[in-house]
Amino acid sequence: MYFPFRQLLASSLALTALTIPARAQISIGEPIPFTDTFSGTLLDDTFLVLTAWRTDTGSVNGGLFGRTFVGLTNEPVGEATVSAQSSTTAPNFFMARNSASLSVENAEAARYTTQSSHGTHTQVEFFTPTSLTPARTRFHWNVSGLTSSTYPGVVTNADLRFAAGYFPTTSYYDFFDLATQENGGPLMSVSGTGAFSYNLPLLLNQPIDLFYHTVAYVGFTAEGGETFSGFSDFSNTHILDRIELFDSNDVLISEWGMREISSGQVMFDQNGRTAAANGGNNIPEPGTLGLLALGGAALLGRVCRRTKKGN
């Protein structure tokens, strides 16, 4: 069983890109690092409530950098009554806590969705003082959470997308269109809980792009008259918790570091996440807030839809 979802905010690529100082920028002018955080509830493709924060537009409907929250309580929507809550907190480097819950009484014949998401595009470089030459890296993600529903066909889950490599013309939203690993591409796309690993032949003498997107969601396509509820609580977190470097003989390199280019801070080393990675975010300056009027409409574009195929 599948339910329609897509990455959010992509039609905003048509907006004029703003210049935000950074040491590295891709050709279309997207600021790096780029951050996208969203929470919302939809009836079909219409938002009942939403809040968001993006690096290039700042706040939409009160969203904060790395933090969004919205809720509905016994809200009349046509003949139905809707209660929903979605929240995202992204406290540190490549870490997100997403949760979503939805309850509908006397549903109309419509698609109900609530979801929260967070994602980032940044650039890093690896260095090592040893004589060993890095040949590949392995990124380790850990995903934990709980889901529940009270009615057949209610979809409750969370997704993780991650890609690493050199993508000189790829923006945060273009990254969703990369081919998946199952199809020979660089994009890891997984759902649910677990430990997930990602291998990358190490690229030397150039920046390495890191993209990720996490989302927790609850959804149901009603025929009319149903009463249902569900939650997807991944506030225990999606986290990039470990990276390994290997030499050309596939031997672990014992001493190395990974520096985020924009901040100059070392985010990982051979011991795992550093204090910089776990110590909070440096908040970038938001773009001109005059673009906010376009923010709500932009949320409806280019959404990664998985079509529901029945109960």
Rank of each mutant, 00 (worst) to 15 (best):
Y151Q: 07
S148T: 12
F176A: 15
S131Y: 05
F175V: 03
S189A: 11
W141H: 15
E125T: 12
A164E: 05
N183L: 13
P186W: 04
L160S: 06
G185A: 00
F175Q: 11
T170K: 10
S144A: 15
S149I: 00
Y173C: 09
L187F: 00
M188Q: 05
P134K: 10
G185S: 06
F167C: 06
A135F: 13
G153P: 06
A179Y: 11
S148D: 15
V190Q: 09
N157W: 06
F139R: 02
Y173Q: 14
Q181R: 14
T150N: 14
L178M: 14
V143R: 14
P152Q: 10
N142H: 15
G153N: 08
E182S: 15
L178C: 04
N183P: 00
S171Y: 06
P134I: 12
F175W: 08
F162I: 01
T147L: 03
W141R: 09
F139A: 13
D177V: 02
R136I: 00
Y173A: 12
S171T: 15
A163L: 05
V143N: 13
N183G: 01
P152Y: 07
L132Y: 05
H121S: 03
N157F: 11
T133V: 14
R136F: 12
P129Y: 01
S149W: 05
V143P: 11
V155C: 03
A164V: 12
E182Y: 11
F162L: 05
P134Y: 08
V190C: 03
T169N: 13
T156H: 02
R138A: 11
A164K: 03
T137F: 06
T128E: 02
H121R: 15
V190A: 02
D174Y: 10
H140D: 04
N183K: 13
F175T: 06
V190E: 09
P129V: 08
T180P: 00
Y172H: 01
N142R: 15
T156C: 14
N157C: 02
T137I: 07
D159Q: 13
H121T: 01
D174K: 13
T120M: 14
T120E: 15
R161N: 11
V124N: 04
F127K: 08
G185M: 00
S131P: 03
S191F: 11
F167H: 04
Y172I: 07
R161G: 07
Q181S: 09
G184H: 05
G153Y: 05
A164H: 04
P168S: 10
L187S: 02
A135H: 14
R136V: 00
F162N: 04
Q123W: 00
D174S: 12
W141C: 10
L132V: 03
H121Q: 06
E125L: 06
G145K: 11
D159A: 14
L160E: 09
T156K: 06
